[in-house]
Amino acid sequence: MQETQLLANGFSAFAATLKRDLLVAFKRRNDLLNPLMFFFIVVSLFPIGITPEREALAEIAVGVLWVCALLASLLSLDNLYRSDFEDGSLELLILSPHSLYFMVLAKILSHWLVSGVPLVLLSPILGYMLALPEEAYPTMIITLILGTPVLSLLGSIGVALTVSLGSRGLILAMIILPMSVPVLIAGTLAVGQAVTGNPVGGHLAIMGAMLAMAVSMAPLASAAALRISIN
């Protein structure tokens, strides 16, 4: 009886946090657009910097898309806890009797919904601009759907650890970028396999496993890190 009560409380805290964060994000629409435009601009620098030839572009398209998605998600991560830290609502979240795990998970989910999902939606256009072979599109979209939440989850640990620092941009990148390597490898491999017409099921399963592991562990680490940062 008590356990179901706790779980129900957890879910209501989850829903309330998610609703609030989405509302806050909606009120600051312009902030949301910036990482997306960054993604667009950086991707379009590659053809200019390397070569406009379609064959050469097709070869690097997957890697460019994944690296740019990683950088864009890194830039948008600052929104995850920063404003809540500055106006003190993060302290209230920690002091509240509800499980911090669910609230952190809700914050990460809302971050993914407003930064990861638009990135996924934009990716076919950028894939076309980079001359990505047609047969790779479904795999690219699926890997991005599986991979961008992992980036948000890992990023949440890094932001939670550094939220109390004044200038955290560089150190956040130093913490998160090496950790994102497995996602990057799995994502590029899967799309590379799709380009050459090989089966991609195994790679997608590995990405799913990474997502499952990140969902279950990253909010715990983030919650612990937040408690440490707030003191």
Partner: peptide, 8 residues
């Protein structure tokens, strides 16, 4: 904080 980061 370093303890958490080391474990992760």
């Amino acid at each position: 904080a370093c303890a958490v980061l080391s474990i992760v």
